[in-house]
């Protein structure tokens, strides 16, 4: 069939105009949620800090003369056991932590969405996909991450790969159920009847329909990745070349400073908390706003 025929597919059910107005409505509802906007601001600030790290503080290297100094005007967040400035470490850590979050989430989403959509669209594969996802979800994730990271040798790519490898099933699970609810709808059948190619139908119909779920997954997977990476780093399984929030905490733990120098752990922990909380709140607010059922009640 021709491209003309494709656009002729039932217009009522593939509504561009409606989508636009629903986006506006979602945005309005989102703004009404008092937790939504502040969360967006915090995430934006953290992203900015990560991008502009070199402009904010010098890269913490080597050592400094004053070890384990409490916060002061010279060192806003105090110094660590080698006399390095913790503020600079947290700023530079933002970069590495964000990088791990973005990369592992991107990888997990790509894989997870692919598996979910293929499974949902080609019904014969669905049982296999469902079983695989269930099996993956039943694996003990953290112990396996520790095992792989320890054996493969800790580095940024390994951390990203390990986190992505255990995050995609959750993405698949969520996206799959959203996709399944769409494939049964009349306009999908119609698109098939008029002979749209599989790839076209998936790209034009299935993916847009699951987009909101994917957006939420991206945010949640990324924020969980930050926590997982910090946990691995705390067990000594992080890249020694770059600063991440987890590494600051790991060094505080190794030097026995956690119990006596509160600033070594408070600030990186707060950074983790700020990012994960605001990312989660953002996705909750978005979810609430997008669901018409949640509005006006």
């Amino acid at each position: 069939m021709t491209a003309q025929a494709r656009t002729d597919a039932p217009a009522v059910l593939e509504p561009v105009a409606v989508a636009e107005s629903s986006a506006r409505r979602t945005w309005r509802a989102f703004r009404r949620n008092p937790l939504g906007l502040p969360a967006v601001v915090v995430v934006a600030v953290l992203i900015l800090v990560g991008l502009c790290a070199p402009l904010i503080a010098a890269e913490p290297t080597g050592y400094g003369p004053d070890v384990l100094q409490a916060p002061s005007a010279a060192h806003w967040f105090g110094t660590d056991n080698l006399g390095r400035d913790i503020f600079a470490e947290v700023v530079w850590g933002t970069r590495a932590s964000m990088l791990v979050a973005v990369c592992s989430s991107a990888l997990a989403i790509a894989l997870g969405v692919l598996v979910a959509v293929v499974g949902a669209y080609f019904r014969r594969l669905d049982t296999a996909v469902g079983t695989l996802v269930d099996l993956m979800l039943s694996l003990p994730v953290l112990p396996l991450m520790i095992l792989i990271a320890a054996l493969a040798g800790p580095s940024l790519p390994v951390t990203v790969a390990v986190i992505a490898a255990f995050s995609w099933p959750e993405v698949t699970r969520v996206v799959r159920s959203a996709a399944l609810s769409v494939v049964g709808l009349p306009y999908m059948d119609a698109a098939r009847v008029i002979g749209g190619s599989h790839r076209w139908i998936i790209r034009k119909h299935l993916l847009p329909a699951t987009a909101p779920v994917i957006v939420v997954s991206v945010v949640l997977t990324a924020s969980r990745a930050v926590l997982s990476a910090a946990g691995l780093a705390f067990l000594g399984l992080s890249d020694a070349q770059s600063w991440s929030w987890g590494r600051i905490l790991y060094e505080a733990q190794q030097s026995g400073a956690m119990s006596s120098a509160w600033w070594t752990t408070l600030f990186p922990s707060l950074a983790i908390l700020a990012l994960v909380v605001s990312a989660t709140l953002m996705s909750i607010a978005y979810n609430d706003a997008r669901n018409p059922r949640n509005q006006g009640r």
Partner: peptide
């Protein structure tokens, strides 16, 4: 309640533990 739940989920265990 929502905020509290989200904060709890996002805590870094060792820091809270110590």
């Amino acid at each position: 309640v929502q905020l509290g739940g989200v904060v709890g989920q996002s805590l870094f265990v060792p820091s809270v533990g110590i």
